[in-house]
């Protein structure tokens, strides 16, 4: 593992956490239509075994070298979904980097993986996938689709799509706007989605909520209400990864302060 572990996803058993280990760089566009491009020089999936405090990679037998990112467990814990693209070489054209949606069977008892299978071939559609996220009933998978690369928040064309995992049909969602839609999270009953969108001003992301019955039955999105409705007009900060949770977050600033003083627990590389 040559880079930090990011984009964590907890296995439903609570026994594993999947990460991707990414070496990220950012570049700045000079044309007014775009701002920043964030891309990975390399990335791979790693699994953290909570009980053993060990980390290991999950290589496959494919002869092509890939970059893998955004791991997400299925609600049953039997599949790990993620995005992947062929490893880039020096001097590559960043506009040709397209990530497909892929999954691998997972055996929680042994902690081992099956072969990779492409669930949605974005490359064929000249697009790129980010942030797969599965509804709690395991029926739908929502992902972000954009023209290229891995960092959808800086892609104005990025929209949310829904994949029906029963019939593998992909549909564009009517919640999208002309600006960026990117990170998203399901509610525990699978009827609501919170997602970040830049529809307000094109620069700062805000958390929007939407009711989801199915791909055909999507409610009207609304922004997280604030006590002062003019806050979003003034606020130059952006909301990053909105997550829906089932209860109140109890830890307070003092808990964070205390925890920050603790020694870090270093995981060992089990190198499975």
């Amino acid at each position: 593992m040559t880079a930090n572990a990011v984009y964590p996803s907890w296995h439903p058993s609570g026994k594993y956490v999947a990460f991707s280990s990414n070496k990220t760089v950012q570049s700045f566009y000079m044309h007014p239509s775009k701002n920043i491009e964030v891309s990975d020089m390399y990335s791979s999936l790693v699994i953290y075994d909570v009980e053993k405090n060990g980390m290991y990679a999950c290589p496959d037998d494919d002869t092509i070298k890939y970059m893998e990112t955004f791991p997400y467990w299925s609600p049953g814990g039997d599949y790990l979904y993620f995005c992947r693209t062929a490893k880039t070489r020096e001097g590559y054209d960043f506009r040709k980097v397209k990530y497909d949606l892929v999954r691998r069977f997972f055996d929680p008892l042994s902690g081992s993986f099956g072969p990779a299978e492409v669930v949605f071939n974005a490359y064929e559609k000249n697009k790129s996938v980010s942030f797969p996220s599965i509804s709690p009933d395991g029926q739908f998978l929502v992902f972000t689709l954009h023209d290229y690369g891995t960092f959808s928040i800086w892609h104005k064309e990025a929209d949310l799509y829904m994949l029906n995992l029963k019939n593998m049909k992909v549909e564009w969602l009517s919640l999208n706007s002309n600006e960026t839609e990117s990170y998203h999270s399901w509610s525990s009953n699978g009827k609501w989605l919170v997602f970040s969108s830049k529809r307000g001003d094109g620069l700062t992301a805000r958390p929007y909520f939407v009711y989801i019955g199915s791909a055909d039955s999507v409610g009207k999105p609304f922004v997280l209400p604030q006590k002062d409705p003019s806050l979003y007009r003034r606020m130059e900060k952006t909301f990053n990864r909105p997550e829906l949770v089932t209860g109140k977050i109890n830890p307070g600033p003092r808990d964070f302060m205390k925890a920050s003083g603790n020694d870090p627990v270093k995981a060992t590389w089990t190198g499975k």
Binding site: S27, F28, Y29, M30, H31, P32, S33, K34
Partner: peptide, 23 residues
């Protein structure tokens, strides 16, 4: 004066000026 076509800024301003003139 703005670039007509897109490019990434580099840490070399001599190169940046060349890219700007090209675009």
């Amino acid at each position: 004066l703005m670039p007509g076509e897109d490019f990434f800024i580099t840490t070399d301003d001599s190169k940046n000026i060349d890219l700007l003139l090209k675009s």
